[in-house]
């Protein structure tokens, strides 16, 4: 007997006839018991980067920005409170002169890190939805 056979139909018929595997008896009960147990002990997901670390990074950026303006600040006499703050910061770092380019690099790196932390955190949440 010779005839043309469509491989697609052949595979489909074979797969449909073969059917699916069936899990063993009691599978449904096991799953429902696990689900009930899971409901009683929910998994607490921690954020990738905690709020405190993000706040610390942000504070660090703010401090660095202050140092940048503090190291070479020229008093104009119009903002006394700001002058006091900057004088205080200058006193704190004992007149240590940080080159401007290093301050720019460090502050840029910290800002970039903060942005990436927020983006990566969002991506992580999306991936593990």
């Amino acid at each position: 007997m010779s005839h043309k056979i469509n491989i697609d139909d052949l595979i489909k018929n074979m797969v449909k006839e073969d059917g699916l595997e069936t899990p063993p008896d009691g599978f449904l009960n096991k799953v429902m018991s696990s689900v009930v147990a899971a409901n009683e002990n929910p998994v607490a997901y921690k954020p990738l980067i905690s709020k405190y670390i993000l706040a610390a990074i942000f504070s660090g950026v703010v401090l660095i920005v202050f140092f940048i303006f503090g190291s070479g600040y020229q008093s104009k006499g119009n903002y006394p409170y700001l002058e006091n703050l900057l004088n205080g910061i200058q006193a704190f770092h004992f007149n240590l002169e940080i080159p401007a380019y290093i301050s720019y690099i460090v502050s840029s790196a910290l800002i970039m890190l903060m942005i990436q932390a927020v983006l990566i955190s969002g991506l992580y949440k999306k991936m593990h939805r």
């Binding site: 056979i5 469509n6 491989i7």
Partner: peptide, 11 residues
């Protein structure tokens, strides 16, 4: 493209 072949044996 559907693939066909001649078969001389039982289905």
């Amino acid at each position: 493209q559907h693939q066909y072949f001649d078969e001389k044996i039982d289905l």
